[in-house]
Write a protein that binds this DNA or RNA. Structure first.
Lengths: 131, 131
DNA sequence: ATAATATAATACCCGTAAGTATTAATTTAT
DNA sequence: ATAAATTAATACTTACGGGTATTATATTAT
């Protein structure tokens, strides 16, 4: 399953905003573009706002803009804010401890894809989408 | 979250069985070794049995043994039988379609870790644990 | 035969992620 | 001032993965 549906939504929202350089995005306009249940989208926008990725202005003509430069927003941070990174970093067999000197059966096998995943999300920012 | 808890359990069970060459494994003995809720473990064993990875013999002195040679059991098949592979193979942003000529924003970025993951589980069998 | 020891089947329960509804607060155009 | 348009807060509902309970079925030691 890789990442949760909510993480998926968050990425969909922020990548859309990053790629479409508008002065501001209302929940309404995002709803029209992205395929996310409206009320859930609105709540998620508030969450992303609280997390500091975007900032909101209320009232008429309100909406959302990025709160920080795209270069500073790593994918890892987005996923982390939604569902945490621990489940990704831990032992794939779910062992509480998976010591280096006596790792779990799948440790060796899992290492490569896991590192590829973590490395990617930890070194890539929203700005990289524009390249 | 990577893989579901049930997939985790399934891998834990089968890797344990693969690494400990006993003539037979009872649910009881697996429960003693692996940290999985007993009743859930038993149900999962039945599932794995139905899926054809292991076969059960009932009654006194019953238990489970592999139904097929370890060389033929790919990790991808195990995960597939528990939660399916589609969520892993599909678009990371959850788009129904993510066409090659006009892929989603994260397509390029996600490609490497995704392939590393799929490649690993599709080319590794339980027998590889014994190497 | 019977009792003991296994797995199988089925139904139910619970916690959490996902989704919905309602009301409040804020801003601005008129 | 007022109404319209926006986000915020909060509570509720639903779906599902994970976990539990109960009963049935099969095998074998005695």
């Amino acid at each position: 399953m890789f990442i949760s549906k909510t993480s998926e939504y968050a990425l969909r929202i922020l990548t859309y905003m990053a790629l479409n350089n508008e002065t501001q995005f209302s929940a309404q306009s995002l709803y029209a573009e992205l395929d996310i249940p409206k009320r859930y989208l609105m709540r998620l926008l508030t969450d992303l706002s609280k997390s500091g990725f975007i900032k909101a202005t209320r009232g008429r003509n309100g909406g959302y803009v990025f709160a920080r430069p795209l270069e500073t927003i790593y994918f890892s941070e987005i996923i982390d804010s939604v569902e945490g990174l621990l489940p990704f970093e831990g032992c794939v067999l779910g062992n509480a401890v998976c010591p280096v000197d006596k790792p779990c059966a799948m440790h060796q096998i899992w290492e490569k894809p896991k590192q590829a995943f973590l490395e990617t999300i930890k070194t890539t920012t929203l700005a990289d989408l524009l390249l």
